[in-house]
Design a protein around this nucleic acid. Structure first.
Lengths: 338, 338
DNA sequence: GTGAAAGCGCTAACAT
DNA sequence: ATGTTAGCGCTTTCAC
């Protein structure tokens, strides 16, 4: 058995309360006893049992993190940002990799509740789960939502301005003389995908560029889907001169497809990505993309969450909107100078 | 306040013991009361408090995972394997991203203890911490070590045969007619790095290939270091015709360096990696690498850990050795056919 | 089949 | 400055 507070108390000839006091750094303990107890704690290698502590304080110092897909570097990056912040403030994070599966998302939430986490950061795909979650939990534990893109903001939210971002990306292609533009979108049932598509279309219309539906394909944010969808696009009779991939992972897939078809980026076809993951500067040619710091996003979500955990003032939920920035690299060709 | 077992008991007009019984699926409860209680549980949205439960059962159903670097896709992959298995068996995993920092590793262990995790999976770099850890914990909680490569096996271990793997990779280059071979190793203070270097040297010697120390550079398993070290190699007066990078991430960095110097893979220089991360089939040219499934590794470590948690028989610790397989792709040129 | 009582390791009033 | 008591939400003997 591990040593408990009782063992320390016995050895120090004091009550467990006194021991508890020095553990928690309360002021009203005499210097002598305090030091004596500390010594004994060290000697016996005592470590307070957080489970017991949590039961009475109702704080576990655990944050739940719902991760849609651990294999997308997007999320480890975010998790790192959250973890760093949390750790600094004495919190640990427990993650649940849901694989974008609604059932798993549901289970993740159940789990977090059972585990009595102090708060949760979610970035879910499934609308229904999210709504249910909110309704039922209302005030059970603090939640920060990332990229939910919901109209009515109930929980504090960090949103990515996908409409604006898609617009910027598309405009960049147009400015570079492209008028035959394809788009590989994410899963249609997610808000970000819808918003991105909306921004894309809006920008085309605004600039009087014709939309060709054959060049719009639906992927699922994975490399594989980018690869497959790009191949489909390249099989069309008329091909676009540029393609906007809704994330860098799919853009990576595009690279592979294009290379396999014996074409060159950006000479034969231009690619622009989204998210600007680290890899994008390590592929050849380097990928032009829309940058947003997932690390920062994770960190910010942690800050907001902790604020909410400690304040408990449920009024006016914060709402942060992140606007991705265009990072010009080598994957887009300027046609207008020709 | 959340609803507790008491609330359910009161509503059902039974003792909390009975409620506890149905929660835990004990047999000796009459069908009627059981069903009634279940109904009420559902109605009130009751969820057992795992913290309270953990306090008495001394089980938290939490596994601690020490991750050296979340941003290396290697680890999310492994974490996914572990998570999947753990989840299936009713366990959650709490991770600690140590960033290969000895102090953080130390802290991670302290934390895991305080949190009363049921077991831990570690793959640490730091030898000292590891030893200390073992000595002090001996029987505190079950541990699985990954890639520790320690001589005396105390804990169950999953090892990667880095000596053999480096040998295979090197031999492959030699068979393809290469005799000027460089090597970018990982951090020298880690066992895997030492073993890999050892295997590399051993293979050269065995095949009477001269070792050129200028072509051996020390990186840190990051893309950046691969990039930098490759640049250094390419600045040497005499250049190797092939380079073996100790992991794919560094190989990726090599690609960038080589491209920037205006050279081509594999025509001007061949590259072989190690780990075979998913990206390696998505870069151009596709990377020849040594494959080992991190997902499987994570899963296996979970299986071993759970076995240890449940068995508690500390005798003859298991020891699994994984032997990476060569995956031929496009980044190595066959010089002998010239 | 069901309940009463004790206790897991700790904190938090309330005394002294 | 220190101890006594109660209790967090649950499981687990031990009775009945």
């Amino acid at each position: 058995m591990a040593v408990t507070i009782k063992d320390i108390a016995r050895r120090a000839n004091v009550s467990i309360t006194t021991v508890s006091r020095v553990i928690n750094d309360k002021h009203d303990v005499s210097k002598e006893t305090k030091e004596n107890i500390k010594k004994i704690i060290k000697e016996m290698g005592y470590r307070p049992n957080e489970v017991a502590r949590g039961l009475v304080t109702k704080k576990t110092y655990i944050i739940g993190l719902l991760i849609p897909d651990l294999r997308n570097p997007f999320y480890p990056e975010m998790a790192t940002g959250l973890d760093d912040l949390a750790r600094r403030e004495g919190y640990s994070v427990i993650y649940y990799n849901t694989r974008k599966n609604a059932k798993e998302e549901q289970k993740a939430i159940e789990l977090f509740k059972k585990k009595q986490v102090d708060g949760v950061v979610i970035s879910m795909c499934n609308k229904t789960v999210r709504k249910k979650f909110k309704k039922r939990n209302e005030d059970e534990f603090p939640i920060i939502e990332i990229a939910s893109n919901l109209r009515r903001i109930v929980n504090p939210t960090i949103n990515i301005d996908n409409v604006g971002s898609a617009c910027k990306a598309t405009r960049y292609l147009i400015r570079n003389g492209h008028s035959k533009i394809g788009h590989i979108i994410g899963k249609r049932n997610t808000q970000p995908a819808r918003h991105t598509l909306f921004g894309f279309k809006k920008c085309l219309k605004k600039n009087n560029v014709k939309l060709n539906k054959d060049w719009i394909k639906q992927g699922d944010y994975s490399k594989e889907s980018g690869y497959k969808k790009m191949k489909e696009i390249l099989k069309e009779d008329e091909k676009p001169t540029a393609v906007f991939a809704a994330n860098d992972l799919m853009a990576l897939g595009c690279y592979k497809a294009i290379h396999e078809m014996g074409l060159k980026i950006p000479d034969d076809i231009s690619i622009i990505g989204h998210d600007d993951i680290e890899y994008s500067t390590y592929i050849i040619p380097t990928l032009t993309s829309m940058y947003l710091s997932m690390y920062e996003l994770g960190k910010k979500s942690g800050e907001m969450l902790l604020r909410k955990i400690n304040d408990n003032s449920n009024d006016n939920p914060e709402n942060i909107i992140i606007e991705p920035k265009l990072i010009e690299r080598e994957s887009v060709k300027n046609l207008s100078t020709l």
